[in-house]
Design a protein around this nucleic acid. Structure first.
Length: 489
RNA sequence: GCUGGGUUCGUAUAACGGUUAGUACUCAAGAUUCUCAAUCUUGCAAUAGGAGUUCGAUUCUCCUACCCAGUACCA
């Protein structure tokens, strides 16, 4: 959800300003490759109606070859690996970065030692002096290690004591002293791949990105990114850091487990993890994509008016980063359902009937689309999802097999049954029946509920007139006799 | 721990120095009805705490508390 919301806000800003929304796959961590994840992202965006202007080829796959539509291809960073090394070396040459020869084990040892002393090891201006890198080693030694070893990295040379002044579109002015920051790894010789920080800045520059809108978890690396742009001498984009999506109860970021635990999806589409774990999706749960987009848009943003229902076009019109909040937004599953209810009501009876038909066919119901449409008109206000329809209206298609005990005890009483039997038998329609009951000053509620029990098996549901219109007088009589046979007074 | 960010009804949020602090979801009550749902009406419910600036602070400043994020050769 969080990822889709970030994509949505990016998309809205791009469209509002007449810009392009670009899809780029940041897969520079070869150890974390997840099969199917890329396809999942593309399918999710498509379901939401978020269409990338750039990044996908004519088959809807991540573009690998440049053409008019995709001038910056390839869009997968793992396929762009060739271009990053020279930028890393450009930084080294300019004195903004250096080669580091520390092994993972050595660094681990340093961290453990620091932790033992109750401190945190930071690779920075202070500690780098006593570590093995191109700043401390003789040039000849550096050349030798560069040539002989394949496990070195390029690290950013964080300035020692400088106040970085930053601006965020949502948070305003932010200042951080570089002495609290560390020398981040930018490029790894081992897999000849950059880390996120380098790849992101290089690609944003190459792809002419003007606006970076991402989650708040990136705020701590903003100073690094500012410094990186400065080191390259590039104009930097605008930055906006979105508040996090929080779990409905308790504290912390919304996670997969919350959804499973509390009965709501956290994924746009159903997702099967590599270990076989299945996470439910909004699509599979019966949410309309525009309802999902709408509820996501309202999580952290507001239009400044009292309007809550927005189409994608309306969102594009109304959206602005100024109205994005700063605090994390707790997700409220109840409100999510309310959005879907609103969208369900906005759908035409015909389109809802079409969505329901497959389930009816599955259930072996023989009916025509016209009838289904009329039924939908009757029940849509009572439903949140199309999947609620059957539960609400099944008795229009088949007779009840059993009767709710509590309701039977309440309504199936001798005097009621006698009146109901007579009213039903002596009249031709529900309207006539009502007149009949009224004329005799019989208790309308008791008689009607008695009939309802026979027709639906319970004491709640649609109006008797509506039910009888669909099942017909004959079927109503049949069900009533059946109830008389089966129910003890 | 350190660094950064955040804090208005239970939840999402409005009020960009002056309001009886508004709206929506949820919840409760009433109306309506043949029941239930829907609908309509009403109600419950908040500026984290403390200083300061000001004629006046939800709004500006500082302190405290609490929450979140980051602190990887992950993104």
């Amino acid at each position: 959800m969080g990822g889709v919301r970030t994509a949505l806000y990016n998309y809205l800003i791009a469209k509002k300003n007449g810009g392009d929304f670009i899809l780029r796959i940041e897969d520079t961590d070869s150890h974390r490759f997840v099969p199917g994840a890329e396809e999942y992202i593309i399918e999710s965006l498509r379901w939401c109606g978020i269409v990338p202007d750039e990044g996908l080829d004519e088959n809807g796959r991540v573009a690998e070859k440049a053409d008019e539509r995709n001038p910056h291809a390839p869009y997968r960073q793992s396929q762009r690996r060739g271009i990053y090394r020279k930028y890393a070396e450009q930084l080294v040459a300019g004195g903004y970065a250096y080669y580091a020869f520390d092994t993972a084990e050595e660094l681990e040892k340093q961290r453990a030692a620091a932790e033992g002393a109750g401190q945190t090891f930071i690779y920075n201006a202070l500690t780098r002096r006593s570590l093995r890198n191109s700043l401390t080693l003789a040039p000849a030694e550096v050349e030798r290690l560069l040539a002989e070893r394949t496990d070195w990295t390029v690290r950013f040379r964080m300035p020692e004591d400088e106040l970085v002044q930053m601006d965020d579109e949502i948070r305003g002015h932010i200042e951080v002293n570089t002495s609290t920051l560390d020398d981040k790894v930018l490029w790894k010789r081992a897999d000849e791949l950059p880390t996120y920080h380098l790849a992101n800045i290089v690609d944003d520059h190459l792809m002419e990105i003007t606006d970076v809108i991402r989650g708040e978890e990136w705020l701590p690396s903003l100073p690094l990114h500012f410094l990186l742009y400065r080191a390259f001498g590039w104009e930097r984009p605008r930055f906006a850091h979105l508040p996090l999506l929080l779990k409905p109860v308790g504290n912390g970021k919304l996670s997969k487990r919350d959804g499973d635990k509390m009965g709501f999806p956290v994924f746009p589409l159903q997702w099967t993890a590599p270990d076989g774990q299945v996470s439910r999706g909004y699509r599979e749960d019966g949410y309309f994509p525009d309802a999902f987009v709408n509820l996501l848009a309202m999580l952290g943003w507001n239009p400044g008016t009292e309007q809550e229902i927005f189409s994608m076009d309306e969102l594009i019109q109304a959206f602005s980063l100024e109205k994005v909040g700063k605090a994390g937004a707790k997700f409220n599953p109840e409100k999510a359902k309310w959005f879907n209810r609103e969208y369900l009501r906005m759908h035409s009876d015909a389109s809802l009937a079409a969505l329901w038909m497959p389930e009816l066919k599955d259930k072996g119901v023989e009916t025509d689309e016209n009838t289904v449409r009329e039924i939908v008109a009757l029940i849509k206000e009572r439903a949140t999802f199309v999947s609620d329809f059957w539960e609400i209206a099944w008795y229009l298609f088949k007779a009840p097999e059993n009767y709710t005990e509590k309701d039977a005890a309440k309504f199936w009483k001798a005097e009621n049954v006698t009146m109901a039997r007579e009213a039903l038998a002596s009249t031709g329609s529900a309207e006539e029946m009502e007149d009949y009951i009224r004329a005799r000053e019989w208790p309308m509620g008791k008689v009607m509920n008695c009939i309802r029990l026979a027709l639906t098996g319970s004491g709640s549901g649609l109006g008797i007139a509506d039910i009888m219109r669909f099942i017909g007088r004959e079927e109503a009589l049949r069900r009533f006799h059946r109830a008389e046979e089966r129910l003890i007074i």
